[in-house]
Simulated assay, not measured.
Amino acid sequence: MSEEELWNLTLPEFNALVERKREQDERADLRAGIVAAVIANVFRAKGTKAYEPYDFMPTLRRHETKRQTWQQQLAVAMVITEMAKIKAQKEGGK
């Protein structure tokens, strides 16, 4: 995607792009977690609990949802506002 195409995305299109990237990253992390769990389980002591892929994925835990604080939400809104200002300046300069 070119820079111009990126700047011409609507907010829903941009959000969909970000979500797709997040899902791709999660799948890649899961694959790495599977490999790590298999290796760890081969060498674990008898009678100990088996490792799961999520044990090796500290940023992605099952059944955990981490809500954003209002400060984090404000920071995201400020970034979006700055992006809109930059886009407006670029369009004004054409």
Rank of each mutant, 00 (worst) to 15 (best):
Y54V: 05
V79W: 02
G47V: 01
R44C: 01
A45S: 12
L9M: 14
L74E: 13
L6Q: 12
M83T: 11
E4P: 03
E19G: 00
K85E: 15
P58K: 02
V38C: 06
T48H: 05
D25P: 01
K46Q: 14
A77S: 09
D29P: 01
E19Q: 12
A32L: 06
R27V: 00
H63D: 15
F56R: 07
A40I: 03
D25N: 05
E64C: 14
Q72C: 00
F56K: 01
M83R: 11
E64S: 11
D29V: 02
F56V: 11
W7V: 09
E19K: 13
W7G: 08
R22Q: 03
M57N: 06
V35I: 05
A28C: 04
R67S: 09
L11T: 11
A37I: 00
M83N: 06
Q73I: 14
Q24A: 15
A84E: 15
V18K: 12
R31C: 04
A16H: 06
M57Q: 08
A37N: 02
E26L: 01
E23A: 08
T59G: 14
E23C: 07
R61A: 09
Q68S: 14
A28N: 09
F43G: 00
E5F: 04
Q72G: 14
F56W: 04
I80V: 13
L17V: 07
Y51E: 02
L11M: 13
A16P: 07
M78S: 01
R62C: 08
H63Q: 13
Q71K: 15
H63W: 15
T48R: 11
K66T: 15
V38L: 05
R44W: 06
L30P: 00
L11K: 08
G47Y: 05
I39V: 15
M1N: 08
E5D: 15
A77Q: 12
T10Q: 08
R27F: 02
A75W: 02
A32R: 08
Q73H: 07
A36G: 00
S2L: 06
E64V: 14
K46D: 14
R62N: 12
V35Y: 00
N15D: 11
G47R: 06
K49V: 10
T59Q: 10
D55M: 02
L6K: 09
W7P: 02
V35L: 11
A16S: 13
E52I: 05
M83C: 11
E4K: 11
L60V: 14
L9S: 04
H63Y: 10
L17D: 10
Q68I: 11
E19R: 12
F43D: 09
Q68G: 04
N41Y: 07
E52N: 08
R31A: 08
L60F: 10
M1W: 10
